[in-house]
């Protein structure tokens, strides 16, 4: 390696976010057949409202034109049935994947950690509703957050109860071809929740032992909670079915914080991952320029 080449590499990395972004920006919203991204990064509703308009179906067409292969909609279950169907039809017409929707994520109550008939009925009823949404939309993944921990119950009993409750839910979801993805969240933004770590989620999925209970690894949350992102991706690989993206601090697009997403995406790609990576983060700046910068940031991170 000579000095000229390593300076070039170093400079490119240092100014990532200025020169590299500006170059891509011009092409961003003009091309109708942009190059496909190597991984299925999934924008959410409203992320491109300035460039694509307020209509979610127009937004899906726009992100397809920009080269994205997936879309995610946390609030899918709460939409009217006909809207769910139109979103699904638009996606399938474009050959796009639908990322996990939120099936159950109540941060305010103890749920999965309890061994109670009422709680189990509530959770399994939810699972059945999730299957209905999946039937309408062809969704393959549904997100569940196991809720708060119980200070009055030994931790290991709580773990056992979470495993039991997930088995019931996974049975119901599995019959509808729907995979539950459980999400660890960071304890700074969400104090009091049971599930925070990837090794913990891995242990639970292994114990549930169902192909319909897996992990969504939110890299923003995990960077806050435990760091060590790539080693945890590797160790929990068999149980990871989806990713969420966001840089830290700030939970904005890649390149705005301490995570080297380009290399993490390369690593995930090299492992043969074909699933969805939901862009569950804000934009570092507003308006059309902010959305163009968002596109450019993903182009940069995908150029591995």
């Amino acid at each position: 390696m000579n000095r000229r080449s390593f300076i070039a590499v170093g400079t490119a990395a240092t100014v990532l976010g200025s020169t590299a972004l500006t170059t891509d920006t011009h092409a961003a919203d003009t091309s109708a057949s942009s190059q496909r991204f190597k991984l299925k990064y999934a924008p959410g509703p409203g992320m491109f409202k300035n460039l694509a308009g307020d209509n979610v179906l127009d937004q899906i067409k726009f992100i397809h034109d920009q080269g994205f292969g997936a879309f995610f909609d946390n609030g899918l279950m709460g939409r009217p049935a006909d809207m769910q169907e139109r979103i699904a039809q638009t996606l399938s017409g474009l050959g796009m994947e639908l990322g996990p929707f939120v099936l159950y994520a109540d941060f305010g109550v103890k749920s999965f950690v309890l061994s109670s008939a009422d709680t189990r009925k509530m959770l399994t009823d939810k699972a059945r509703q999730g299957v209905e949404t999946a039937k309408r939309t062809g969704a393959k993944w549904a997100l569940m957050v196991p809720g708060r921990y119980d200070e009055s119950l030994e931790w290991d009993y709580q773990t056992a109860n979470v495993i039991d409750n997930l088995k019931y839910c996974a049975d119901i979801c599995g019959q509808g071809g729907l995979t539950i993805v459980i999400e660890p969240l960071n304890p700074h933004d969400h104090p009091g929740l049971f599930l925070t770590k990837i090794p913990q989620a891995y242990q639970i999925c292994k114990a549930v032992g169902s192909p319909f209970c897996k992990i969504v690894n939110d890299l923003y949350h995990q960077q806050i909670t435990e760091g060590n992102l790539i080693p945890n991706i590797n160790r929990a690989w068999s149980e990871i079915a989806a990713f969420h993206i966001g840089d830290n601090p700030g939970r904005k697009e890649p390149g705005t914080g301490e995570i080297n997403y380009k290399n993490i995406f390369r690593h995930i790609h090299q492992k043969g991952y074909t699933g969805v990576l939901c862009m569950e983060h804000g934009l570092s700046s507003g308006g059309r320029e902010g959305e163009q910068a968002l596109l450019a940031a993903y182009r940069e991170c995908d150029s591995f």
Binding site: A13, D247, G255, N260, Y261
Partner: peptide, 12 residues
């Protein structure tokens, strides 16, 4: 500490 690993050193 370059792009072969998971941290964005210039930001840090």
């Amino acid at each position: 500490i370059d792009d072969t690993q998971e941290l964005n050193y210039p930001a840090i």
